[in-house]
Design a protein around this nucleic acid. Structure first.
Length: 496
RNA sequence: GCCGCGUUCGUCUAGUGGUUAGGACGCCGCCCUUUCACGGCGGUAGCACGGGUUCGAAUCCCGUACGCGGUACCA
């Protein structure tokens, strides 16, 4: 039990759950479940300025919608809590003090302006990216340069301070990343990272390391944007005397136009970027999961479709690719259509009943939806397109497609007229699709035209569109009375 | 600029020294269907470049180019 896998998804509650974050969560989840381990949700709310009310709820709801089951979290509880960093402040301060006492961290009293002045000065003298590091800290106001009595005094008078990591001058930090192999950094390129901010909150770097250790996290699976700061984390583990977890830095999800798939870019490309957009847009969660799983990973064979359980079974970090993956919305739609078609009709009806059209359109009942589903299911990409394409089953058409009308040609009206007469004369009131087909066929023959010449006008008359679900079953579903009424309406409309 | 990571069809990828470089999305065509889709079949298109190593490189090494990330008291 002590060596079982424990992973965490640790988002900041700064907004809706981004699709990239969702994939990170998914990979963590798949890895944990594959190894019979634990999936933890930790809320990294250390940035008070960017905190967004309701973000935590959105994150949890989004994960649940995707079928990602959370084992431990602020609301699911767990032995290693609390799971919100804002509730663990003392723990970080303790760790920071431990580092200060070990002389691997120090107090710094510089104001933002003073740091800015230092940067400007160094920039002017040719340093393109000046940082607070082993060289510059010697000329700044901190517990390394100030006499200890003065440091004491400043601390006692409540002067604002931060605690910085004392990054060594010239050392090599190396670690093995499951996805990238051995990664090496020289400490001279690192700055003296702020560990505790002046508002008493820890920065990501400290909180992350402390929590991962305290929560027994065995594998850190996160986005590649963290790779550059990983050496700081390794230093922290070393100084705190802790065993670092195994690292795995995931390739980034890219925009079709290049670069990280940011909210802004995604909007420009017409890609929904928040998980919430997919929930509200009535997409299939399994499609999103399957698609995301394959964005940067593959089981190594030619398979494409897998349920969450199968993904859990197949997943391995070794097979995650190293390069960024462009988000291909059309492929996602392909997955969506696939999963939509594979849903049980009954389940789909239940979801349809929750859509607003259920109340705005007349005659929407579970029974009717169930009858309509086979006709429309294969033709839609998203569930909510059902009503878009099937409106005519509930309402008489308001307009007729111009192109269809043009294609139907001059004779459309006379065909509709003939059609009406033969249908009115039909002995049955409740025709089957087959009987409607015979009706169309016989009428066409009597008029001396092909089937196409009667089908298109009929379709236009009953639905307003030049294309759509199978005609004869649609006619049967509509009923003779409605069909006749619409034929008449079309005739009036077209000849006026 | 510096540091790090990366580079197989347009896109997602398989591939770990010997393959006609495979699959999927997309796109195109055909079949099915007297609509549109679904489905089936087929086609299109790729190893960034230059040096090595080797009998033999998409696969190993070096370099170049390009891309991406980081370079905050944001995560």
């Amino acid at each position: 039990m002590s060596n079982s896998v424990r992973v965490r998804f640790a988002p900041s509650p700064t907004g809706f759950l981004h699709i990239g974050g969702l994939r990170t969560a998914l990979y963590n989840y798949l890895y944990a479940k594959h190894h019979g381990g634990t999936f933890i949700l930790r809320i990294e709310d250390t940035d008070q300025a960017r905190f967004v009310e309701g973000a935590e709820e959105d994150i949890i709801r989004s994960l649940e919608w995707c079928g990602i089951e959370i084992d431990e979290s602020p609301i699911h509880g767990g032995e290693a809590g609390p799971y919100r960093q804002s509730e663990r402040k003392q723990r970080y301060m303790d760790a920071a003090m431990q580092l200060v006492e070990a002389d691997v961290a120090y107090y710094a009293f510089d104001t933002a302006e003073e740091i800015e002045t230092m940067r400007e000065r160094l920039k002017a003298s040719g340093n393109p990216s000046p940082s607070y590091d082993s060289i510059t800290r010697q000329s700044m106001k901190n517990s390394l340069t100030l006499p200890s009595e003065e440091v004491q005094k400043r601390l006692e008078t409540g002067e604002p301070y931060v605690i910085r990591l004392k990054v060594p001058r010239r050392e090599s930090v190396q670690f093995t990343d499951i996805i990238r192999g051995v990664v090496t950094f020289e400490t001279k390129g690192l700055d003296d990272q702020v560990l505790m901010k002046s508002d008493g909150m820890p920065t990501y770097h400290l909180a992350n390391v402390v929590d991962d250790h305290d929560m027994g996290v065995t594998h850190v699976i996160r986005g590649e944007e963290w790779l550059s700061s990983a050496p700081k984390h390794m230093l922290l583990y070393q100084y705190l005397g802790w065993e670092p977890p195994t690292m795995a830095h995931l390739p980034l999800i890219m925009s079709p136009s290049g670069g990280k798939l940011s909210k802004r870019k995604a909007e420009q490309e017409g890609i929904p970027v928040n998980t919430r957009d997919y929930i509200d847009g009535h997409y299939e969660p399994q499609a999103l999961v399957n698609f995301l799983a394959y964005l940067g990973w593959s089981p190594g064979d030619d398979s494409e479709i897998h349920s969450m359980d199968e993904l859990v079974d197949l997943f391995s970090l070794e097979k995650v690719s190293k390069a960024g993956a462009v988000f291909n919305f059309k492929k996602l739609m392909w997955y969506n259509e696939h999963y939509l078609r594979n849903q049980a009709d009954q389940a789909l009806v239940q979801r349809l009943l929750e859509l607003p059209e259920t109340n705005s359109l007349p005659g929407v009942t579970a029974e009717r939806l169930l009858a309509l589903l086979p006709l429309l299911k294969e033709r839609i990409t998203r569930l909510d397109e059902f009503f878009e394409m099937g409106t005519f089953f509930f309402e008489d058409p308001q307009a007729y497609d111009e192109k269809g009308l043009a294609k139907a040609g001059e004779i459309a009206s006379s065909m509709v007229e003939a059609l009406m007469q033969t249908l009115q004369a039909h002995p049955k009131d409740d025709l089957t699709p087959e009987e409607y087909k015979t009706w169309l066929h016989d009428t066409a023959e009597a008029q001396g035209v092909g089937m196409g010449k009667v089908m298109l006008p009929t379709r236009l008359a009953i639905s307003g569109a030049g294309f759509g679900p199978d005609l004869t079953p649609s006619l049967a579903l509509l009923g003779k009375e409605t069909v006749l009424r619409r034929l008449q309406a079309a005739l009036n409309h077209w000849s006026s």
